[in-house]
């Protein structure tokens, strides 16, 4: 799967650089429908696993541990980056608060801090999403299934979900969707919070 993902990414970038025709337009404009189809098939996989909701219910409030860990870890990592890159803490934490949601973060940071930091925010959050694709198999083997959700951050409810279902289990997939919803809702609030609070 990792090889397929890598080949698809490289092939896609090469196609985007070299071609701009009706085929590429059709694919890019139809990306939402591909995602819908994917979510439908993932839903079927989850539905085939009977008794799953009962397993999830046993966690109660503990289910919030994962999104809280992701948010705290990402903001702390962003603060650490300030010392390594020389970017002010309020900017580095705001960029790290994107949690992998590169489109929204790129635009929001551009509006708040200018095009230069907006491009860094776009690239770093894009790298986070791509990094998730390739590290989920390793994390599932060497750490635990729940930890696979952490690098995915806000993308754990959609684009990185197929990797979850392939390398973890149905229970983790449902927790992953729940985490993605929480993280996605938190991203705009977190960016604004870091931008104002750490300034």
């Amino acid at each position: 799967m990792v090889i397929i993902a890598l080949a698809a990414l490289i092939g896609g970038v090469a196609t985007g650089l070299l071609m701009d025709n009706s085929f590429t337009s059709l694919l890019t404009s139809g990306a939402d429908f591909i995602l819908y189809a994917l979510m439908f098939f993932v839903g079927i996989s989850v539905g085939l696993h009977h008794g799953l909701l009962d397993n999830i219910r046993k966690y109660h409030i503990k289910i919030l541990v994962i999104p809280i860990g992701i948010i705290v870890g990402s903001v702390a990592g962003g603060a650490l980056c300030a010392f390594l890159t020389g970017i002010p803490v309020y900017q580095s934490t705001a960029i790290a608060s994107g949690l992998g949601w590169y489109s929204l973060t790129g635009i929001t940071i551009t509006n708040l801090m200018g095009a230069h930091l907006g491009s860094i925010a776009f690239l770093s959050n894009l790298m986070r999403e791509i990094f998730s694709f390739f590290t989920i198999p390793w994390i599932s083997r060497h750490l635990n299934f729940y930890s696979c959700i952490a690098p995915a951050g806000a993308t754990s409810e959609d684009t990185t979900l197929p990797m979850m279902i392939r390398y973890t289990n149905e229970e983790t997939v449902v927790i992953s969707v729940f985490n993605g919803v929480i993280c996605s809702a938190a991203v705009p609030v977190l960016i604004a919070f870091c931008y104002h609070f750490f300034q």
Partner: peptide, 28 residues
Amino acid sequence: LGFTSFLLFLIPAVCSTILVFFLTKWLM
């Protein structure tokens, strides 16, 4: 902008993974 972007994705992603690993090991 690749290197700065790389650091700004790698460190937050690694920190959150480590934190989630220990929290889930401890609490779940």
